[in-house]
Amino acid sequence: AKLAWIAKTHPRLHRAWALKEGLRLVFTLAKTSPTAAVEALDRWIGWARRSRIDVFVDLQRRVVRHRDAILASIEHGLSNGRIESVNAKIRLITRMAFGFHSADALIALAMLSLGGHRPQLPTR
């Protein structure tokens, strides 16, 4: 009911929501059918280009500029999410290590936290 009310009273906002959902559909389809995802992406690009919403027109231009990388991500199912996660953890460990006297302690803390090694502690 709320969505119908928004469509009636704020058509531009409703169009922006529909564009957002259309782009979300592209990446949902990528998990099951990469060819359908590519077709959906091409339809979304045309729709966003004609939307007359500045933010989506700019986003569409960026998507077109990086289309090859996006298609490779859809086709192979690859993402840089894990790398970004590790980078964020390293930044957090670096902030924790500001009081250390040497970089060796920072490296040891990073290796303990992210290296996958779990040494047996004497009291456990």
Rank of each mutant, 00 (worst) to 15 (best):
A1I: 09
L3C: 05
W5L: 15
I6T: 13
I6N: 12
K8F: 05
K8A: 13
H10L: 08
H10G: 07
H10R: 14
P11G: 05
H14F: 15
H14T: 06
H14G: 08
A16L: 06
K20Q: 01
K20P: 01
G22M: 00
L23T: 05
R24M: 00
T28L: 00
L29C: 00
A30C: 05
K31V: 03
K31P: 02
K31H: 09
T32C: 04
S33E: 12
S33N: 15
A36R: 15
A37G: 07
A37C: 01
E39I: 13
A40L: 08
A40E: 08
D42T: 12
R43K: 13
W44L: 06
I45M: 14
W47Y: 14
W47M: 15
R49H: 12
R49I: 05
R50W: 08
R52Y: 08
R52M: 02
V55I: 14
D58Q: 11
R62P: 03
R67N: 01
D68Q: 14
A69M: 12
A69H: 10
A72Q: 14
S73Q: 12
L78R: 15
G81H: 02
N87S: 03
K89W: 08
I90H: 11
R91C: 04
L92D: 04
A97G: 06
F98C: 06
F98T: 05
F98M: 01
S102E: 02
S102F: 04
A105M: 09
A105Q: 15
I107S: 14
I107D: 11
A108L: 07
L109H: 08
L109N: 04
L109C: 01
A110T: 01
M111V: 09
L112K: 12
G115W: 07
G116V: 07
H117E: 08
P119L: 04
Q120C: 06
L121H: 08
R124T: 12
